[in-house]
Simulated scan of single mutants.
Amino acid sequence: MKTFKKIVYWSLIILALIQFIPVDRTLKPINQKENFVVVFNTPKNVEQILEKACYDCHSNETVYPKYAYVAPISWSIQHHINEGREHLNFSEWGKFNQDLKKNMLENSARSVKDYSMPFPGYISQHPEANLTKAERVLLVDYFEGILKSGKY
Rank of each mutant, 00 (worst) to 15 (best):
Lys2Thr: 10
Lys2Gly: 06
Lys2Ala: 13
Lys6Asn: 12
Lys6Asp: 02
Ile7Val: 15
Tyr9Gln: 09
Tyr9Phe: 11
Leu12Phe: 05
Leu12Trp: 08
Ile13Tyr: 05
Ile13Arg: 04
Leu15Lys: 07
Ala16Leu: 15
Ala16Asp: 14
Leu17Asn: 14
Ile18Val: 14
Ile18Thr: 05
Ile18Leu: 02
Pro22Tyr: 04
Pro22His: 05
Val23Met: 13
Arg25Glu: 10
Thr26Ile: 06
Lys28Tyr: 10
Lys28Asp: 12
Asn31Arg: 10
Asn31Lys: 13
Gln32Asn: 12
Asn35Ser: 08
Val38Ser: 09
Val38Ile: 09
Phe40Ile: 02
Phe40Trp: 03
Pro43Thr: 06
Asn45Lys: 13
Glu47Asp: 13
Leu50Ala: 02
Glu51Cys: 15
Lys52Pro: 03
Ala53Pro: 05
Asp56Trp: 04
His58Cys: 04
Asn60Glu: 09
Glu61Asp: 15
Thr62Val: 11
Thr62Met: 09
Thr62Ile: 11
Tyr64Trp: 12
Tyr64His: 07
Lys66Asp: 14
Lys66Met: 08
Tyr69Gln: 06
Ala71Phe: 04
Ala71Lys: 05
Pro72Val: 05
Ile73Met: 08
Ile73Leu: 08
Trp75Lys: 00
Trp75Gln: 00
Ile77Gln: 00
Gln78Asn: 13
Gln78Asp: 14
Gln78Ser: 14
His79Ala: 11
His79Met: 11
His80Asp: 10
His80Met: 11
Ile81Val: 12
Ile81Gln: 02
Asn82Lys: 13
Asn82Pro: 06
Asn82Glu: 08
Asn82Asp: 09
Glu83Asp: 12
Gly84Leu: 02
Gly84Trp: 00
Arg85Phe: 10
Arg85Gln: 12
Arg85His: 09
His87Leu: 07
Leu88Gln: 06
Phe90Ile: 05
Ser91Leu: 01
Trp93Ile: 03
Trp93Pro: 00
Gly94Thr: 06
Phe96Gly: 09
Asn97Val: 07
Asn97Gln: 14
Gln98Pro: 08
Asp99Leu: 15
Leu100Ile: 14
Lys101His: 04
Lys102Trp: 02
Asn103Val: 15
Leu105Asn: 02
Asn107Leu: 07
Ser108Asn: 12
Arg110Thr: 08
Ser111Ile: 12
Ser111Cys: 10
Asp114Gln: 05
Tyr115Asn: 12
Tyr115Ala: 05
Ser116Asn: 10
Met117His: 02
Pro120Ala: 03
Pro120Gln: 01
Pro120Gly: 04
Gly121His: 10
Gly121Asp: 13
Gly121Met: 10
Ile123His: 02
Ile123Gln: 06
Pro127Cys: 03
Pro127Gln: 08
Glu128Gln: 06
Glu128Trp: 03
Glu128Val: 06
Ala129Glu: 00
Asn130Lys: 12
Thr132Lys: 11
Ala134Met: 10
Glu135Phe: 09
Val137Ser: 12
Val137Tyr: 09
Leu139Tyr: 02
Val140Lys: 02
Val140Arg: 01
Val140Leu: 07
Asp141Glu: 15
Phe143Pro: 00
Glu144Met: 05
Gly145Trp: 01
Ser149Asn: 02
Ser149Phe: 01
Tyr152Gly: 04
